[in-house]
């Protein structure tokens, strides 16, 4: 692989030797990865393999300890303007993490207004546009508690989109959902990917991984073990651990 080289400033995201410790525990072990503009990457791996920690490093919710992280040619470190970074890199969580005390519409407008200083009317117009894109325009006035899990996740996606990110990180977005809702969310993610937003998704949703992803990144014990296109990864995994993982997944 290419990875003893310097980071690639033309990539949307370029990662070299990225490591992260929790005290003595090595959570991320010298990760190297380049992601092109508009690429759809799915991160797979057993639980505890460091997938979530890895994508949380990408918007610096978890600062990395060593290595280089570059987004659009700019090095991300402790001097980075976090508001700008997080505006460019949106995130959707497994448990939605909507603000329960705000209406669906206010969930979507809070950060654009506070962080970007966008006027209320403009922020609301943008929010309504994204809410109808994720198919819940009619829920704008409700509180999160009144929505189903699938609806809440749609709001969370709309909320992330309202910051007009160039990259969107999904942290197991369908793990807490019932099968019917899953297909709805997967549909939305597919639409986003087709619009050209760079998508990095931690998921166990094999349909998305197999049919939408450009590449699969397989992680175990904090290290990236394989990077391959889906058909190659799913049909001919190179490492024993990837084989064992896939055998596990198929049995389920």
């Amino acid at each position: 692989m290419q990875h003893s080289t310097a980071p690639d400033p033309t990539a949307r995201i370029s990662i070299r030797g990225l490591s992260k410790f929790y005290k003595d525990y090595l959570a991320l072990d010298r990760i190297d990865l380049d992601i092109r503009k508009g690429e759809k990457v799915v991160v797979l791996g057993p639980s505890g393999s460091g997938k979530s920690t890895f994508i949380r490093c990408l918007n610096r919710i978890e600062p990395h300890d060593s290595g280089v992280l570059m987004i659009d040619g700019r090095v991300i470190d402790d001097r980075t303007d976090l508001a700008a970074l997080r505006g460019a890199v949106g995130m959707v969580f497994q448990n939605y993490n909507l603000f329960p005390h705000l209406s669906v519409l206010d969930n979507c407008t809070l950060a654009p207004r506070l962080v970007r200083g966008i006027a209320k009317a403009d922020a609301e117009a943008t929010a309504r546009r994204y809410l109808s894109q994720v198919g819940i325009a009619e829920q704008a006035g409700k509180f999160p508690i009144q929505l189903s899990g699938g609806q809440q996740q749609r709001v969370a996606i709309a909320r992330a989109l309202c910051m007009s990110p160039e990259i969107i990180l999904f942290d197991e977005p369908t793990a807490a959902l019932d099968p019917e809702s899953i297909s709805g969310i997967v549909g939305i993610m597919r639409d986003l990917a087709e619009q050209g937003i760079t998508t990095i998704c931690v998921t166990h949703e094999m349909g998305f991984a197999r049919h939408i992803a450009d590449r699969i990144v397989f992680m175990d014990r904090g290290a990236v073990l394989e990077i391959a296109p889906p058909e190659e990864f799913f049909t001919a995994p190179r490492t024993d651990r990837a084989q064992a993982f896939l055998a596990q997944m198929i049995r389920h």
């Binding site: 919710i61 508001a83 969580f93 909320r159």
Partner: peptide
Amino acid sequence: VDPGQVLAADALGMTTAQTYRHVIFPQALR
């Protein structure tokens, strides 16, 4: 208040002060 709230506010680029004022305090008040 669910720690996920702070995570979400962080991910949206809100400052600590904004997070307390608009996300944590309103929920803690209840």
